[in-house]
Amino acid sequence: MDIRASTVLPAKREDIELNTADGLTLVGELALPESGSPAATLICLHPLPTHGGMMDSHVLRKASYRLPALADLAVLRFNTRGTTSDRGTSQGAFDGGEGERYDVAAALEYADFHDLPRPWLVGWSFGTELALKWGRDPLVQGAILLSPPLHRATDADLDAWAEFDRPLIALVPEFDDYLQPEEATRRFSRVPQAEVVGVEGAKHLWVGEPYVRIVLNEIVKRVNPSAAPLPTAV
């Protein structure tokens, strides 16, 4: 069977709730390999909710549909405060990336409490800002940034990540609306361990199955290299 845009591969999936330090309940989902322990964990931070971003934004949803089966990864997705998807609505209200620090912390606390191994942050657009600003936790193995705008995240945040000394991989579309590869390379040069991967032909929203496959392969190459490259059929 060829893996297509709508393919959902077997996994153990359960609805979860995250509890923040400021008293909110966030809704989410955890997808685990059907058997055995995961090799690592992806904690997904979605795009801007005021522009339609949510835990079901398509690249993150497809990661949860495929990577437990294809790469032995746990995939944790959730709606940040005030965000709605088919799973439901998280309590609270959008806070421009500030109060969301508690949302990131709640996801990491959940991963720690449930013994989810080797958590990596996977942020997309707004989610990359949350990763850079609030993801510098000792549990975090590294971060993969999809279409980072570097709007809310400042040079000071990049300098702090440089000191944090965890891997940082930025996947930057050639035709991104906010930050394109040449400028991204300059901005991320503040982080010695950062790697900028320009993706030819891609746009900010990664529309199209070829671009989704590039993103998922780049994630797996870093997080569980033995599972790369991902198969295109099962």
Rank of each mutant, 00 (worst) to 15 (best):
R118D: 15
T128M: 01
S189I: 07
V199M: 05
A143T: 01
G123V: 04
A105V: 06
S125G: 15
D157Q: 13
P167W: 05
V199K: 03
G135H: 01
L116A: 07
P181S: 01
R187P: 09
L132Y: 14
A131R: 07
P149S: 10
P192F: 04
A111M: 05
L139K: 14
E174C: 08
A153S: 12
P181N: 03
A160E: 14
L179G: 03
A194S: 13
L158I: 10
L121H: 08
P119E: 06
P192Q: 11
A106W: 04
A162Y: 04
G127M: 03
P117N: 09
W134M: 06
L146F: 07
E174H: 08
H114V: 13
V140W: 00
T154I: 06
W124P: 14
P138D: 15
E200A: 10
D165N: 13
L130K: 03
A194V: 06
V191G: 05
D155S: 08
L150P: 00
H114Q: 13
R118I: 09
L139F: 05
Q193N: 06
L171K: 00
L121I: 11
R101E: 06
F164E: 14
P173V: 07
A105G: 08
R190E: 10
L158K: 02
W120F: 03
G201I: 09
T185K: 10
V172Q: 00
S189H: 00
F188Y: 13
E109I: 08
D115R: 15
E195G: 05
D157V: 12
V122G: 02
D112M: 13
V140G: 15
P149M: 02
V122F: 07
E163S: 14
V196F: 01
D137Q: 13
A184T: 00
A194L: 00
Y102W: 04
R136T: 13
L150F: 03
G99A: 11
L108M: 12
P192D: 11
D165G: 12
V197E: 07
V197G: 04
D155W: 07
R136P: 13
L121A: 04
L121G: 02
P117W: 01
R187M: 10
R136V: 08
A153F: 09
D103F: 01
R187D: 01
D137F: 02
I144H: 00
D157G: 05
P173R: 12
W161L: 10
A111T: 06
F126L: 12
L150Q: 03
L130E: 04
T154D: 15
A143S: 15
E174N: 09
R166S: 07
T128K: 04
P173Q: 08
V197P: 02
E163K: 11
A202V: 08
E200D: 11
A153N: 03
G97F: 03
G142C: 12
V140Q: 04
D165E: 11
D159H: 06
E163Q: 13
V199H: 03
E109A: 15
L179F: 02
E174L: 08
V122Q: 05
W134G: 03
V199F: 02
S125N: 15
S125I: 10
V104R: 00
Y102C: 13
A105K: 12
H114K: 15
E195P: 01
E195L: 13
L146I: 10
Q193I: 07
S189T: 09
E200Y: 08
G97M: 02
P173M: 09
